[in-house]
Amino acid sequence: MPQITMIAAAAENNALGKDNDLVWHLPDDFKRFKELTTGHHIIMGRKTFETFPKPLPNRTHIVITRKKDYQKEGAVVVNSLEKALELAKDDPQPFIIGGGEIYELALPEADKIELTRVHGTFEADAFFPEIDEKNWTLVASHFHPKDERHNYSFTYLTYQRAE
């Protein structure tokens, strides 16, 4: 069984982004995202996929959409989370990478959450679901201060589904 991991950067008010874009720029978080997801299946909604200038290298892109005839080069297109997870079943750790609606759908299926908690609150139109502490155990936490390359401090949080 693969370990399904949700990976996201969300503000203290769970804001993910606005108008299909992130509301912050955190190079070290992008670097960590790349390190964790390279070589794996990344599962996302159509709007998230369309924010990429081109498919991310060395990853299998699975795009979930309700649009029946949607096709994009570099992506496997499916119409449900179940179908996406079925396609990723041979990957020991497929990643759910957004957006808000997809995270909401995937939360009950996820085994792990890699969350970058951006310290601030932002106006947004996409949000990460609330993490219920009864269902999740924080297993790792690493603080990253604000610096010349990062306008906000943030903390990498790793949650494991509680037994």
Rank of each mutant, 00 (worst) to 15 (best):
Asn20Gly: 14
Leu22Trp: 10
Leu22Cys: 12
Val23Gly: 08
Trp24Ser: 11
Trp24Phe: 09
His25Asn: 15
His25Phe: 11
Pro27Arg: 03
Asp28Gly: 12
Asp28Ser: 15
Asp28Arg: 14
Asp29Asn: 14
Phe30Ala: 10
Phe30Thr: 06
Arg32His: 14
Arg32Phe: 07
Leu36Ser: 05
Leu36Trp: 07
Leu36Arg: 13
Thr37Glu: 00
Thr38Cys: 14
Gly39Ile: 02
His40Asn: 06
His40Ser: 11
His40Glu: 13
His41Pro: 05
Ile43Asp: 00
Met44Ser: 06
Met44Gly: 03
Gly45Arg: 02
Thr48Cys: 11
Thr51Ile: 07
Phe52Pro: 00
Pro53Ile: 09
Pro53Lys: 11
Lys54Ile: 13
Lys54Thr: 15
Lys54Met: 14
Lys54Val: 13
Pro55Gly: 04
Pro55Lys: 04
Asn58Lys: 13
Arg59His: 10
Arg59Met: 06
His61Cys: 09
Val63Ile: 10
Thr65Ile: 01
Arg66His: 14
Arg66Asn: 09
Asp69Gly: 07
Tyr70Met: 08
Tyr70Arg: 03
Tyr70His: 03
Tyr70Thr: 07
Gly74Pro: 05
Gly74Ser: 05
Val76Glu: 13
Val76Gly: 02
Val77Thr: 11
Asn79Cys: 03
Ser80Gln: 05
Glu82Ala: 15
Leu85Tyr: 03
Glu86Gln: 14
Glu86Ser: 13
Ala88Gln: 07
Asp90Ala: 14
Asp90Ile: 03
Asp90Lys: 13
Gln93Asp: 04
Gln93Lys: 15
Pro94Val: 01
Pro94Ile: 02
Pro94Met: 04
Ile96Phe: 06
Ile97Glu: 01
Gly100Lys: 03
Gly100Leu: 10
Gly100Ser: 07
Glu101Met: 12
Glu101Trp: 02
Ile102Gln: 09
Ile102Glu: 01
Tyr103Met: 05
Glu104Asn: 15
Glu104His: 15
Ala106Lys: 02
Leu107His: 04
Leu107Glu: 09
Leu107Pro: 03
Leu107Arg: 14
Leu107Tyr: 06
Pro108His: 11
Pro108Asn: 06
Glu109Trp: 10
Ala110Asn: 03
Ala110Gly: 05
Asp111Met: 03
Asp111Lys: 08
Ile113Thr: 12
Leu115Tyr: 05
Leu115Phe: 04
Leu115Cys: 09
Thr116Arg: 01
Thr116Met: 06
Thr116Asn: 10
Thr116Val: 02
Val118Glu: 02
His119Glu: 12
Gly120Pro: 08
Thr121Asp: 13
Phe122Cys: 08
Phe122Tyr: 06
Phe122Thr: 08
Glu123Asn: 13
Glu123Thr: 12
Glu123Trp: 08
Ala124Trp: 02
Ala124Thr: 08
Asp125Lys: 04
Asp125Glu: 06
Ala126Ile: 02
Phe127Ile: 05
Glu130Met: 10
Glu130Ser: 07
